Amino acid sequence: MTSSASLRTRQFQPDPEFPADPPIRVSRPAGSNRSALVLSSPHSGDIYPASFRGASQLDPLTLRRSEDAFIHELYAAGPALGAPLLEALFPRAYCDPNRAAYELDPAMFDAPLPPHVVTDSSKIGAGLGTIARVVTGGLEIYKGKLAFTEAERRVETCWRPYHDALETLLEEAKACHGVALLLDCHSMPSVGGTHNPDAGQRRADMVIGDFHGVSCAPRLVDRVEDYLKSCGFSTTRNKPYAGGYITQYYSRRDQGIHSLQLEINRDLYMDETRIEKAGGFNRVQGAMTGLIELLIASATPDFLKE
């Protein structure tokens, strides 16, 4: 697999507030206990640099509205079971790895953007490009305009390392097992927002995204849905989320690489206002551990064959 993630433009110093360089965490299975499943948590990062907080007009709790809080903890059993877990330590509001590298709103910047930047997409229109203009709920993040060099620095020090690591993990899984299965792990607000097609409606417990049947073998999607229903969860497919950039980009079914996105309704396991774990956390975590086991057992050439 070859991706634009492996290309480098300029060298930038990482933000010293991040505890790791690059600001990602890869938890690998011990020894040879390695399955074909790869877990990706691109939106659970919760380290907000002081420079970012200073440029924002929002209070710290409001800034966290876009965060898939605690999602990496729900899948924490993955490495012990044989599935590596990749986490972004940087927050989605700072840089979103579930977008193309340079998917930017030109109105956010103090000068015209270079020609290679994508400036027109549905995500940009919603204020949720690679560098977001708003948090979930539509509140504007920034006090003023940004320099493009700031966006470039975040992409080079956050976005690219995340994708380099994800590509490596998938290549390793494919080399070892002949197939690879990516589960992109997310959470969603319990009720559709003002600008969503399901505005005001309570969402299903779990939304399975396979890009409308494109990114993953249908029999695996059926197995996942049957399992989640057996756990007592309500499910939908592809509505309102069919899978983001990661799910779409890394799917190579003709090469044995399948990808799936799972959105978990936040009110199942957390207080959405306080961004704190709630009483249902252990139940959901247990169900996700079972899901990891199911996906590991299913991620074989025989089961995923087309």
Rank of each mutant, 00 (worst) to 15 (best):
5 A>H: 03
6 S>H: 14
7 L>W: 07
7 L>P: 04
9 T>Q: 06
11 Q>A: 15
11 Q>P: 00
11 Q>G: 14
12 F>R: 02
13 Q>R: 14
20 A>I: 13
23 P>S: 11
24 I>C: 06
26 V>A: 01
26 V>C: 06
31 G>M: 03
31 G>K: 08
33 N>S: 11
37 L>H: 10
43 H>R: 05
45 G>I: 11
48 Y>S: 06
51 S>K: 13
53 R>N: 11
53 R>S: 09
59 D>W: 05
61 L>V: 14
63 L>E: 06
64 R>H: 08
68 D>R: 08
70 F>L: 06
71 I>P: 05
72 H>E: 15
74 L>N: 00
79 P>C: 07
81 L>S: 12
81 L>V: 02
89 L>V: 13
91 P>F: 03
102 Y>G: 07
106 P>I: 02
113 L>C: 00
119 T>N: 07
120 D>G: 12
122 S>N: 12
124 I>M: 08
125 G>I: 07
127 G>V: 11
127 G>Y: 06
129 G>R: 04
130 T>W: 06
131 I>D: 09
133 R>G: 08
135 V>A: 07
138 G>S: 09
140 E>F: 10
142 Y>S: 00
147 A>M: 05
151 A>N: 00
154 R>H: 04
154 R>P: 00
155 V>L: 02
156 E>C: 09
157 T>N: 09
159 W>I: 04
165 A>H: 02
166 L>A: 00
166 L>H: 01
167 E>A: 14
168 T>R: 15
169 L>T: 07
173 A>F: 10
175 A>P: 10
175 A>L: 12
176 C>F: 13
178 G>A: 00
180 A>G: 01
185 C>G: 12
189 P>L: 14
194 T>S: 14
199 A>D: 12
199 A>Q: 04
202 R>M: 12
204 A>H: 04
205 D>N: 09
207 V>L: 03
209 G>R: 08
211 F>A: 15
211 F>N: 15
213 G>K: 02
214 V>A: 14
217 A>P: 10
222 D>C: 11
223 R>Q: 13
224 V>R: 00
226 D>N: 11
231 C>M: 11
236 T>P: 11
236 T>Q: 13
238 N>P: 04
240 P>A: 07
240 P>V: 09
242 A>R: 07
246 I>R: 11
249 Y>H: 15
255 Q>K: 14
259 S>V: 12
261 Q>L: 08
263 E>L: 00
267 D>H: 06
270 M>V: 03
271 D>K: 05
275 I>N: 03
276 E>S: 01
280 G>R: 11
280 G>N: 00
281 F>R: 02
282 N>K: 15
286 G>T: 09
289 T>Q: 13
295 L>R: 09
300 T>P: 05
303 F>S: 12
304 L>F: 08
